[in-house]
Computed example of a mutant assay.
Amino acid sequence: MMHVRRFTPQLLRVLFVSAMALVASGCSMAQTESFTFQADMPENFTISPMAYYASASGESCSGHNLIQSEQPKGVRPVEFKLPLTDTAKGCSMVLTKVVLHIEGQWGKRELDMSLQTAGLSIRDEPSETVRPFPTSAPLVFQGQCQWLFRTMGPYRYIVKILQCRGLDANGVVQKSLAGAALQRDQLAGKTVKLVLTEAKEELPAIGDNWVKFPAGWKRCMGKGLDDLYGFCRGNTTDFKPFKMPDGRDCTVYPNCTE
């Protein structure tokens, strides 16, 4: 004899709650996968990642979609969640690369800054350049930023240019920008971290403009005070004054006076 179970109000309530739990679980499972990007930088630096998305395989959509994330200056730690997929105009998109916009502030004025980039490339296939993830720790890649100084304009004001390059496993500065190649199917839920440092010594942006002495760098005279290029061209005895950003007249950088 078949046993028929009667659906009491209490049983219906339990079934309804269970169904809602399953729906909620399904929604959470369908949430967009992402990875975490972190950055450890000097205090006078900020970073903004721009994520680029392209059409998923097999779709006829063209172009790309990009999302720019910003974090207020001075906020630490630096951390962003970057989705691995996106939707644009009804088309499925996948993350292809992340360009990291680095801004360094070298003076007190708002325009006393310089920009550089680093990047993450997302690969579908394994290759020798793809960085494997550690078992539990974040995947860390390193870079170093170098400040380069020069004079600008007829009054020869000091300005600075930022140059950021990657570091290898031994801490040796590379010619390439800081960055890493990552495999897509290893990224979900993982953390990728950029550790960015500042070179201890500033260097001339143009080598044949300055001569180094124990007291600091002196600006070559060139053809005269009005020579904006002011190349040394073998003349390492005649120098001209310049101005610091605060207006001080100086003869040696960065100490101003000998």
Rank of each mutant, 00 (worst) to 15 (best):
P132S: 14
G222Q: 08
L120E: 08
N255L: 00
F141W: 11
G171A: 12
S69D: 15
V172F: 11
S48V: 00
P132F: 12
K175H: 11
Q174C: 02
I161Y: 14
C91W: 02
K240G: 08
R131F: 02
Y52Q: 06
K200I: 02
E125F: 03
G222V: 12
K108W: 09
A137N: 12
E103Q: 05
G166K: 10
D112M: 02
A180P: 10
R165F: 05
K175Y: 07
G143V: 07
E128M: 12
L100G: 06
D40A: 06
G207C: 01
K160N: 10
L148K: 10
G171I: 04
L100D: 11
L203K: 15
R233N: 12
P241S: 07
M113R: 14
T237K: 04
S57L: 02
Q10C: 01
T191Q: 14
N44K: 05
M2L: 11
M20L: 15
I67W: 02
W147A: 02
Y155L: 01
P138I: 01
G247P: 15
S62C: 01
A178S: 08
G224M: 10
R156F: 04
S136V: 07
F80A: 03
L15Q: 11
L22K: 00
R150C: 03
N65G: 07
R233M: 10
S69N: 14
K240S: 13
K73T: 13
G247V: 11
F239S: 01
L167T: 12
L182D: 12
C164W: 04
F231D: 07
A169D: 14
S18L: 09
D238W: 06
L12Q: 15
W147R: 01
L203I: 10
G166Y: 14
T129F: 04
P9M: 00
C256R: 09
T236S: 06
G179N: 07
N170E: 08
K223M: 15
I122F: 03
T32A: 09
W217I: 09
N255G: 08
K108F: 13
E43A: 15
R123H: 13
R150I: 05
E70H: 13
P49N: 00
A118R: 04
P245V: 00
L148R: 10
T117L: 08
L177K: 13
T135M: 03
M20P: 09
P204D: 08
A88Q: 13
R165A: 08
T251H: 08
Q71R: 14
Q163R: 11
P126I: 04
L100T: 08
A39K: 07
V173F: 08
G171R: 12
C164A: 06
T135K: 09
Q142R: 12
T237F: 11
H3T: 15
A118D: 14
E103W: 03
V192I: 01
T8F: 02
N44R: 13
T117P: 10
K81A: 05
I161G: 11
T151Q: 05
R109Y: 15
V173L: 10
